[in-house]
Every structure is written in C-alpha cells, then in structure tokens.
Nucleic acid binder design. Structure first.
Lengths: 163, 163
DNA sequence: CTGAAATACTCAGTGCCCTGATTAATTCGC
DNA sequence: GCGAATTAATCAGGGCACTGAGTATTTCAG
C-alpha cells in the first residue's frame, strides 16, 4: 500500500541507466576492458605521467577503486608504473604502446556505441540529457564538502527561515 | 591527443550520477540499508509473497545479485523466505513487521532526498530528466534479446530427434 | 511413464565502489 | 634540525553487478 513508484526515483533510474550502458558496452565495445578502465586510459592519453590519485580525480574514482583499476591495467601490460624520483610517495603512470593502441581502438568503438545508446533521443534532447545529468551530479558532488568554500562569517544560514 | 571528452559520454555521466546519488543516500537516508535493498523492500510491500526471481525482475536485479540482497535483508530480519508448497523450486518472500517499519521510515527519507537531489532542476526539467533517462534505458534494454520474436519455423531445429 | 527441456536457485569468479585503518614519504612549524 | 601534520598508496571489509556452471524441481514430449 505504502509502496512507492520507483520510476520517479532518480537513484533507481541512474542505476538502470548504468546497467543499460554496461550491457551495450559489453556487446559493442569490449568484454575485456571496462568503461572505467577506458576512462583511465583516456586520462593518461591526455596527460601522460599523472600519478594515481590525480587520475582518480580526473575520472571520478576514489583512491581504492583507482588502485584496483590501475593494477588490472598494469597486469594487462597497458600501462607502466614508476616511482616518482621527486616524491617517493607517488607512482607516475604512463601508457605502453599496447595501451595506446588499445585506447585508439576502443575510442572508435565507444563513439559508435554512444550513437546507438543515444539514438532514441533527438540531437536537442541529447544535449539536454547531458546538461540535466551534469547539473544534478555536480550539485550533489558540491554537497560533499559543505564547509569549505569561502563562506563569509556573517553566515545567515537562511534555509526556510520562516514558513 | 586522441583523448576524448568524457563529459559527452553517457556511460561516464551515468556512473557519476550514480556516485552522486550514493553519496546523498548515505548521508540522508541510511548507512545500513542501501538503495537496491530499499527497492526490494518496496517491491514486497507492493506485492507480498513474490518469489526471488520476480522481485529481481521488478527492481532490475539479476538472479545472482538479487540472491545476495535478499540474503542480507534476511540476515537483518527484514524479510522471511519460505519454500513454495506449490513449487519446490521457488522461495516466497514476505516482509516482517520490522521490514515493513523500515520501509515506511525510509520511504519518507527517500522522498526528502529526492527533492534535494533534483533541486537544481525546475519541475519541467525534472520530468524531462525522468523521461530522457527512461527512454534511453528502455531502448538499450530492448536490444537485449533482439532475435526472439517471430523466429520462422523453417529453422530445422535438428537436435537428434531420432534415437 | 520416463527421459529431455525448462525453471528457480546456488556457487565460483571477476570487477566496480565506498569507508576506515595503516604505512611510507614529504612538508610544515618552531 | 626535528617532531607533527599532511599526503600517496595499500589493505581489510562490505555491498552491487554480471557471467558461466551446477543442483534440484517441475513440466513437457513421446
């Protein structure tokens, strides 16, 4: 009775969307390399020599997840990991030739897959789709560290001040 | 420089959206019960006595994942699992009183969380958001079993019929 | 009625995703 | 210079998500 309609719950929709994407990726792009792995390759194509933490920041993966992903890519021989001589805490990451080749190949397939994935939407709807999702994600991400940003000490924290 | 802009990749956006949702859920709804777990509770509020497979179908979880989720909910005492006397393969699922209470409590918090999550969008944009995501997900889901319908019987389905 | 197919569930294996605790290296305060 | 934060990475642990293989039960074909 008190049951709720999940089709109006953004979290549920987000999960379904990701599942749908996973499915398509698996059939149209690669069964070996996953979408997060491709994101890491892509980040290192753009900026070779990044350290692990920064790559994670670029692609939106936390410290633990990025470590696992990088270890898998390393095992496959797609990237190299060398300790930074300047800062012994860091590992610098760089794609191997094989990694570079793999990225090129998958980039093409990914573009094709995106077209299929977005085919149900008109061009205008597609940019709307991006825009809406980005705005929601960014806003939620912004709630993460609420204190940080230069809040002046006046601090009238004015949520629902009066009914 | 063959690097690609991930902000125009729906898969990447879907993942980020889900991460953002996870974050908000964790802080505003529950650290114990996850969003998929709530979806299962909700399905059983709507239709008590469903079997495992059907619950999975309702909330979009495959056979393995639904088994794990249900086992966790069972361990927490939120649902009961009894073998179907009519069909010994099935287990029938039903919420306990505690499960029902939990669902009621979380439903309220979830509604609040959804408001915060969607706050960056106007009402019109929110329905657009739902509509666009649903259309993309449904279309991709539809590609799953493309062949099925209307397989012509010419097909000589020739596994050794004669022995 | 009986053997084959279908069905519900389980299990093993891989990968993503997060938090909290720990270790090693660097930087900062004094 | 040196001890105290800070920072990069690892590890342990819990949960979601999929596939392929295996078990038990039911249904269907002949």
């Amino acid at each position: 009775m008190a049951a709720v309609d999940l089709t109006t719950h953004p979290g549920h929709l987000a999960r379904r969307l990701q599942q749908a994407h996973y499915l398509l990726w698996n059939t149209m792009v690669s069964e070996e390399i996953t979408s997060p792995q491709f994101a890491v390759l892509n980040a290192l194509v753009a900026e070779p020599g990044l350290d692990q933490r920064t790559v994670g920041e670029r692609v939106g993966l936390d410290r633990s997840t990025i470590a696992e992903v990088i270890s898998r890519l390393g095992r496959r021989g797609l990237l190299d990991k060398v300790r930074d001589p300047q800062d012994g805490r860091r590992f610098l990451l760089r794609l191997t030739d094989d990694g570079l080749r793999t990225h090129r190949k998958l980039a093409v397939r990914t573009a094709r897959m995106n077209q299929v994935f977005l085919a149900p939407l008109s061009a205008a709807e597609q940019s709307l789709f991006f825009d809406l999702i980005r705005r929601v994600s960014d806003a939620a991400e912004g709630l993460r560290n609420p204190a940080e940003p230069a809040v002046p000490q006046g601090q009238a924290l004015a949520n629902t001040t009066h009914t």
